[in-house]
């Protein structure tokens, strides 16, 4: 028979060890996110396969091509032709356009899904359950709490965008180590991808976390976020551009500004509206980030004072 000691005992651990509040919040946030995702197993698996399908395909093509070219004696003429086919070479040569196309154009829909599914509940559900009082009466600061929440959604978005892109560059690097000049080019591309990826991860993460702080339910946060995105991206900006025939209204689209800045960092000219200066997009994104942070600071408080 198991006998439990039901009395209260004192804890003799180290009370002076630093509290890594943001890490604890991040760890719990990721566990909760995974649990939310796998609440329905089949849709979760389909979603994950769809999100990582292109990554697995590109990774496979990179290694298969390298293997064929490294073992030409084992393969017939057809395989060698396949490996040297311009389309296959294009698919397996990491360059700024390729990274842009993968991170932004291929993955944006999955970033949206991640934001709605995993980002919307982050603060909204804590507000609904009055958990902010529990968090902030413990030795973690508002800054640590927010950092943990932002890092949670940032991790999921990064897993969909910048992490697979970086792995693909590293895979490319691993098979083209002996090509002259290639390692240096790929290292530069990796650095630029990480910076561009940071912008692409930060803006949606900040926006959905802010929307989450403005709502008391995950569903309402998701609706709010989608409304802002749809209104700014597709309605207001397009209508104003048509009415006033001015490209400056592109700046109202957060997504457009992200694309401009990502292209700038990657050294790309694709998809740029040349009449809208990139510095203006940088300023808009900086302003948006400041606005989000101010809203978060105002909304995340241990005690809500209702006048």
């Amino acid at each position: 028979m198991v006998i439990h000691d039901r009395s209260y005992s004192r804890w003799k651990g180290d009370r002076a060890a630093p509290v890594k509040g943001a890490t604890v919040v991040l760890e719990a946030g990721i566990k909760r996110g995974v649990a939310t995702l796998f609440r329905r197993k089949l849709p979760a698996i389909v979603l994950i396969l769809a999100a990582f399908g292109p990554f697995i395909f590109f990774l496979g093509v990179i290694y298969i091509r390298a293997y064929i070219l490294g073992n030409v004696e084992k393969f017939g003429e057809g395989f060698i032709e396949f490996a040297n086919d311009s389309e296959v070479v294009r698919m397996t040569t990491a360059n700024p356009e390729w990274i842009y196309s993968y991170m932004i154009l291929t993955q944006w829909a999955f970033v949206m899904v991640a934001c709605v599914l995993l980002g919307a509940p982050l603060i909204a559900e804590d507000r609904r359950a009055n958990a902010l009082e529990l968090y902030l009466s413990r030795p973690i600061s508002v800054r640590q709490y927010l950092l943990g929440k932002l890092a949670t959604i940032g991790t999921f978005v990064a897993m969909l965008t910048v992490i697979p892109a970086s792995i693909l560059i590293l895979a490319q690097l691993s098979v083209s180590w002996s090509d002259p000049g290639e390692p240096l080019r790929l290292a530069g591309l990796l650095a630029r991808t990480l910076v561009a990826g940071a912008v692409w991860v930060a803006i949606p993460s900040l926006t959905i976390t802010t929307a989450s702080s403005l709502a008391d339910r995950a569903r309402n946060a998701a609706i709010l976020w989608l409304s802002v995105v749809v209104m700014l991206e597709f309605v207001v900006s397009n209508i104003l551009r048509e009415v006033f025939n001015a490209d400056a209204f592109w700046l109202l689209q957060i997504g457009f500004n992200v694309r401009q800045v990502v292209n700038l960092v990657l050294g790309n000219t694709a998809d740029l509206v040349t009449t809208v200066p990139v510095w203006a997009s940088v300023l808009v994104l900086a302003g948006w980030a400041v606005l989000c942070l101010r809203v978060l600071a105002a909304r995340v408080r241990p005690v809500q004072v209702v006048a």
Partner: peptide, 21 residues
Amino acid sequence: EAPQLRRRVGYMPERDAFFPG
């Protein structure tokens, strides 16, 4: 925010409060 103090105190709030999920 006094982290050193909050390590030494426990707080049971009046209203219904829990970590969701």
